[in-house]
Amino acid sequence: MEEKELKAYEVLEQLNIPYKKYTHPPVATIAAIEELDEKMEVMHFKNLFLRNSKGDKHYLVLVDSTKKANTKLIAREIGSTRLSFASDERLEKHLGLQPGAVSPMGLIYDKNKEVEVLIDKDLTFQEKVTLHPNVNTASVTITYGDLLRFLDWCGNKRQFVEIP
């Protein structure tokens, strides 16, 4: 087990957040996860790592997996310049993650709290959520409330956004 995965479980245990763990072959997309034979009890959500046009602001967008996130609309809602996907190097620098493993758990490594979390308002209707523990060979299911508790512990700025 990778050190970054172990760190994710350590933090969940430190916060007394119960979780159900699933191991699976490497998956980099929601479509790949849905093709797995594993029957996970809840929906995954998309995790998009974006940057503004200057490259001085970074956002982790948590969006319902059934939606297609429109970066122009998100930028307009948060009052940002144009948003685009951040490079693999920026992902590694800010969240310590590799492509395909983007997850809120990467916020553990954002020591300077430089990444703002944007949460799709429709996720609030989920009882449970499933996410990667910093690797794409495992997934964990936690309650939505515990996800918010984890985000509180991380201390990054966050806001809820309307994603049509």
Score class of each variant (00 low, 15 high):
E3H: 11
K4L: 13
K7T: 14
E13Y: 00
Q14W: 00
N16R: 11
I17F: 05
Y19P: 08
Y19I: 08
K20V: 13
P25Y: 09
T29C: 02
A31C: 00
A31I: 03
I33Y: 05
E34W: 09
E34D: 13
E35T: 09
D37F: 14
E38W: 04
K39Y: 02
M40F: 13
E41M: 07
K46F: 02
R51G: 01
K54E: 15
L62F: 02
A69P: 01
K72G: 10
K72N: 12
I78W: 05
L83D: 10
L83G: 09
A86S: 13
L97M: 04
P104H: 03
I108T: 05
D110W: 03
N112E: 13
V115A: 10
E116F: 00
V117G: 02
I119T: 12
F125W: 10
K128G: 00
V129T: 13
T130M: 11
T130G: 13
T130D: 00
L131D: 10
P133R: 05
N134M: 14
S139Y: 02
T141Q: 02
Y144M: 10
L147H: 02
L151E: 05
D152T: 15
D152I: 13
C154S: 15
G155M: 07
F160H: 10
E162P: 02
P164C: 03
